[in-house]
């Protein structure tokens, strides 16, 4: 817990890293300053792109003592404002699951290789990023904890060439504890889909902790959107840092 007599500092910048297929992509990296080894976090950004909210979230995790990296999963779609790039990705039907998993795995290896890493790496994502984080935690070995915030399409009824497997079908391969935060008014994922996912985790004996918030829908952390729910957000962040302290500390 931070007290006012403590030294605190974060160094944040854009860097390049190796992603899927060895491609160089850019990423936002925030590192706590000061002595000691730190756990690390990989953030999977949401459908609206590699945007300001994710830069702020990167800083927030770092300010709480985590080396944090957010790769630009839309790097290959060109550059422009985050909205314009995300609109281009949307028109293309999204990015492929293989590419997202490769980029997130590359980010995990990058932060684990830093001198002041304690070797533990978690992953966090919201919206499509929650889905990508879950895929990465199942398919790429090496994550020590995952936080899925309202990841849509983790339970899919219809797949497509870019998203060929419903992520919940990879549940048997999940190798770390999972914290899930959801809103009961969400339409993607619906509470029913969250229940299906939870049953799958239970079936395979996974370490999971799911919370379904009342009076909250999709994206209730986003303070710049009407869906923002301050009470649920405060409680959600508290649960996130308690979970990470337990599994990455």
């Amino acid at each position: 817990m931070y007290t006012t007599d403590m030294y605190t500092g974060v160094h944040a910048e854009t860097i390049t890293m190796k992603g899927a297929n060895g491609d160089e992509i850019n990423a936002y990296l925030a590192r706590p300053l000061g002595k000691g080894k730190f756990p690390a976090m990989v953030l999977a950004h949401h459908m609206p792109g590699w945007d300001e909210w994710y830069m702020e979230a990167t800083f927030k995790f770092s300010n709480h003592g985590f080396i944090t990296i957010t790769p630009n999963l839309y790097f290959r779609s060109g550059h422009g404002t985050p909205e314009d790039v995300a609109a281009k990705v949307r028109a293309d039907g999204g990015i492929s699951d293989d590419q997202a998993v490769g980029d997130l795995e590359g980010a995990m290896k990058y932060v684990r290789g830093l001198d002041n890493s304690n070797g533990k790496v978690g992953i966090f994502g919201t919206c499509s990023g929650g889905r990508h984080a879950y895929l990465a935690a199942c398919r790429a070995k090496g994550f020590d904890a995952i936080i899925d915030c309202w990841g849509g399409n983790v339970v899919m009824e219809k797949t497509n060439p870019k998203m060929p497997v419903s992520p919940h079908e990879y549940t048997k391969d999940l190798s770390c504890p999972i914290l899930g935060l959801f809103g009961e008014e969400d339409s993607s994922p619906t509470p029913e889909q969250v229940k299906i996912h939870e049953e799958e985790l239970k079936k395979h004996g996974k370490n999971y902790e799911f919370h379904m918030y009342p009076n909250a829908g999709h994206g209730f952390f986003y303070y710049h959107r009407p869906a923002y729910r301050p009470d649920q957000t405060v409680d959600g962040w508290k649960k996130i840092f308690t979970f990470l302290e337990k599994h990455l500390g």
């Binding site: 459908m47 609206p48 909205e83 314009d84 995300a86 609109a87 949307r90 028109a91 919206c127 339409s187 829908g217 999709h218 994206g219 959107r225 009407p226 869906a227």
Partner: peptide
């Protein structure tokens, strides 16, 4: 014109009907 029903960037809804009128580089 790229037409989608997905999360908006600005309109105050969870999902909207989005139309991006585009050319090679502008929207």
């Amino acid at each position: 014109a790229n037409v989608s029903f997905d999360h908006p960037f600005h309109a105050p809804y969870e999902h909207t009907l989005n139309i991006d009128f585009v050319n090679e580089s502008q929207r």
